[in-house]
């Protein structure tokens, strides 16, 4: 764990990322040349008003969507040069996802959902690591239950654990607490922070909630497809003040 903290290489980065949707009159510039890097073992929050391009940035960096121009990297891998199949394999091995609406498979148990990425890859994974992840979720014997038998918070903890299961290079979260009440949100964010601090993971999350952002190590502010500011060791108040100046 100390090793990853010492390492200063970046888990993922983007260089002059440009993303344009549509053509002609309906052209939308979602990203206007974003250059950014995410340190290993860091918890980063991306903030910005609606339509600022924060989700687009995350999708492109995670290999879910392709840039119009520019380049994104996961570790040393250049994403634009990968075929759809290799991109899929890269996601499977090096990227984890946490979705706003949990996106658990209702027909699989919590444990089966957690090991799903490994099963898809046909690998057993690191059993000790998986046990550790499952223990960290604090679900106990509820891991053999179906998602609909779990509370919202528990479901999202399963979703986070699923992202952790394959011990990816980087985990992306899309408003991971958007569907949760504030107490459950705190619990999930705390869980994510522990994954970074104690398990040495790298997490990037998109949010528009200053409280959520305050759990991160670093906050990036996006407006009109450009990074306009960043902040280290944020608190809810400083983030809130910053957001006001951005005119959310």
């Amino acid at each position: 764990m100390t090793e990853t903290i010492v390492s200063s290489t970046l888990a993922a980065r983007a260089e002059t990322a440009i993303k344009i949707y549509g053509h002609g009159d309906t052209e939308v510039h979602a990203l206007r040349g974003v250059t950014v890097g995410f340190e290993r073992g860091q918890f980063t929050a991306i903030m910005g008003p609606s339509g600022s391009g924060k989700s687009t940035l995350m999708h492109c960096m995670a290999g879910l969507d392709r840039l119009t121009s520019g380049e994104t990297y996961i570790g040393d891998t250049t994403l634009s040069q990968l075929s759809d199949k290799n991109l899929t394999l890269l996601r499977r091995e090096k990227v984890g996802f946490i979705f706003q609406s949990y996106n658990l498979i209702p027909t699989l148990t919590a444990k089966e959902n957690i090991t799903l990425p490994l099963d898809l890859a046909g690998s057993d994974g690191d059993q000790a690591w998986i046990d550790e992840v499952i223990t960290t979720t604090g679900l106990g014997d509820r891991v053999s239950h179906r998602p609909n038998e779990l509370s919202g918070g528990q479901q999202q903890r399963v979703a986070v654990a699923r992202a952790l299961a394959s011990r990816p290079e980087i985990i992306f979260g899309d408003e991971p607490t958007g569907n949760l009440d504030s107490r459950t949100s705190a619990e999930i964010l705390d869980f994510m922070r522990r994954a970074v601090r104690e398990l040495g993971q790298t997490i990037v999350m998109v949010t528009h909630d200053p409280v959520s952002a305050s759990y991160s190590d670093r906050v990036l502010f996006l407006t009109d497809g450009q990074i306009v500011d960043e902040m280290s060791n944020p608190t809810p108040e400083t983030v809130f003040d910053k957001m006001k100046t951005l005119g959310d």
Binding site: I105, L120, R162
Partner: peptide, 16 residues
């Protein structure tokens, strides 16, 4: 579609 998208996101290939 959402479930399929999620499976694709976490690494299921089109063939799977």
């Amino acid at each position: 579609i959402q479930q399929i998208g999620m499976l694709r996101a976490i690494g299921a290939t089109g063939r799977q």
